[in-house]
Every structure is written in C-alpha cells, then in structure tokens.
Amino acid sequence: MTTIEAPRTPSRPARKRGVNWEKWGWIYMRASGVVLVVLIFGHLFVNLVLGQGVKAIDFAFVGGKLSSPFWQVWDLLMLWLALIHGGNGMRTLVNDYASHPLVNRILKLAILAAVVVLVLLGTLVIFTFDPCPAGAPANLVASFCPVP
C-alpha cells in the first residue's frame, strides 16, 4: 500500500531554536554599512582634506589623533564595524563559490582568524599607542610631547 504524505508536511525541518544568525547578519550588514559611510568619509575628510591635506600625515599627526579619546572611539568603531562587515561579506562570497565542504570550511576559518587577529591587534594599538616615545627628536613627534 502506498501512503500519501499529508499535504502540509514540510519537506525540510523547521529552523532550530536559538539565535537566527542569518537574520542578525543581514541586519548587521545594513546597520554597520550606514554607520561606516559616516565614519569612513569623516576619517578621509579629516585626514586628507582638512588643514594641510595629505601632507600633514606623519607620525606626529597619527600620534596626536590617537591620543585624543574622541578619535580613539572613532577609530575603534571603524575598526570593529569594518572588519566584521568585511569578514561577513567574505563569508557570503566563500559560501557562493567554494562548494567543496572542506575548502569552504578552511577558507571561512582563515577569514575568521584574520578578522580576530586584526581586530585584537588594532584595538591594542589604539589604546596602548605611545605618541611620545622616549628619545625621539622633537620634529618627528606631536607638539604636546615633552621634548628632552
């Protein structure tokens, strides 16, 4: 005897309980994208257009920026949002093109490792950066440094 499946039997199992990563990933991409537009264009404008423009960028300029709490928060947000945004985008690309399960897994782990290392390293630099290294000549460091 052949049995006919009930018409409303779903052929794929219902989603498991728990965090819906696909949904939150989708929302994250849009939310972070909007914030990043402001952060990145603000960053480019301040660094490249304001004041002396691109000629102003040297160790003293970067040191001066990274010692201000405002730019620390700005750069930290930019670092985290952009790297996770990019990493998630790369993950979708890998899912599209790497059909071999092992290759797919290796590539995604590599992306994850790169994102984690860069985020941690960048965060460390933002908060431990010393704008006035001992013994540096005055013409290379920020103006507020105590000159020996």
Binding site: P10, R12, A14, R15, N20, E22, K23, G25, W26, T92
Partner: peptide, 14 residues
C-alpha cells in the same frame, strides 16, 4: 514568515 526566516530563506537575497 517563520519558514522564510530560515538559513535558506529571504536573507539569502542580495
């Protein structure tokens, strides 16, 4: 909506 809120649902759309 629950069916389409899945991994292979609407979030795949680009």
């Amino acid at each position: 909506l629950d069916i389409l809120n899945d991994k292979e649902g609407v979030w795949r759309c680009r």
